[in-house]
């Protein structure tokens, strides 16, 4: 340990106000520096710890950057085939209705190859939680264009920017599934600021608490950065996300307690 600036005498166990939760396995995360995945992993585990349901929770990890989520989360986890996490979660939840089940998916997994599974699980109104990390790019495979890539956004397969004439429009998965009667709580959050992290944590908490009442899918989208894929520093990428992602993917609740909320998220048509 290198000498730090001031050695105060308050470094005692009784003065700890924040430390990394023990539900995360004590090993370095495999994510790039500044990636939002680490933050979301931590707040999910903190939520489970606060609700003391870690023994009754089963997570389903996706394919993508977070494919190794089961290596970091110290709970029961299963790895699903690409995009099939909602199908696997459906099976788990139907076999063990008293367990808390969640899927943790990226945008390539949930919005591209897994669109059918996602929409049908939401339409059937299964009673689990879906956590959707949207960074507008395929991060793990080298920054290719994803369904959620913004118009004119550069990626390794759209080097001149996404041309909507030939490559189509970005997919707003969260607004799409909010229209389905099977969803109960649909929200979009971000983890780029401390306030955003706290709001996301509240949303995740609500999503897990909804499972007790068996009311349908709770869906939390987290707009996240991909500084490696976007070729920026982490701080720059958070700023870019605020300026470019949020106008297209506005933050806020879209559906609460089974009713659509009239917010700027639903009012914005573009």
């Amino acid at each position: 340990m290198v000498e730090q600036f001031a050695k105060l005498d308050i470094r005692k166990d009784e003065n700890i106000v924040y430390k990394r939760t023990d539900l995360l396995v004590d090993r370095p995360l495999s994510y790039c520096p500044g990636c939002g995945h680490g933050t979301v992993h931590r707040i999910i585990m903190e939520t489970l710890e606060e609700m003391s349901i870690q023994d009754k929770t089963i997570g389903v990890s996706p394919v993508g950057c977070s494919v190794l989520a089961y290596d970091f989360m110290n709970i029961d986890m299963l790895g699903a085939a690409h995009g099939r996490a909602p199908a696997l979660a459906t099976a788990i939840k139907r076999m063990w209705p008293d367990r808390f089940v969640f899927t943790y998916q990226g945008d390539g997994d949930l919005a591209a190859i897994g669109t059918a599974e996602t929409i049908h699980a939401c339409n059937r109104g299964e009673h689990f939680t879906m956590i959707f990390i949207n960074n507008g790019i395929y991060g793990m495979t080298g920054g290719q264009m994803a369904p959620t890539t913004l118009p004119n956004m550069r990626s390794s397969t759209s080097p001149y920017g996404r041309d909507v004439e030939t490559m189509g429009f970005p997919l707003k998965m969260t607004e799409l599934i909010a229209q389905l009667p099977g969803t109960y709580y649909v929200t979009r959050q971000a983890v780029h600021t401390p306030a955003g992290v706290r709001k996301t944590k509240k949303a995740i908490r609500k999503a897990f608490e909804n499972q007790k009442n068996k009311t349908g899918i709770s869906f939390v989208e987290v707009v996240s950065n991909c500084n490696s894929g976007w070729k920026m520093t982490p701080v720059q990428s958070n700023k870019w996300m605020e300026e470019n992602m949020f106008p297209f993917y506005p933050l806020g609740d879209i559906k609460v307690d089974g009713k659509l909320v009239e917010t700027k998220a639903t009012a914005a048509k573009e």
């Binding site: 470094r11 700890i16 924040y18 680490g38 706290r198």
Partner: peptide, 13 residues
């Protein structure tokens, strides 16, 4: 709260 890797422990007194 913001640290993606959870490396910071905070004390307050």
């Amino acid at each position: 709260v913001i640290c993606p890797d959870g490396v910071i422990t905070v004390y307050r007194a």
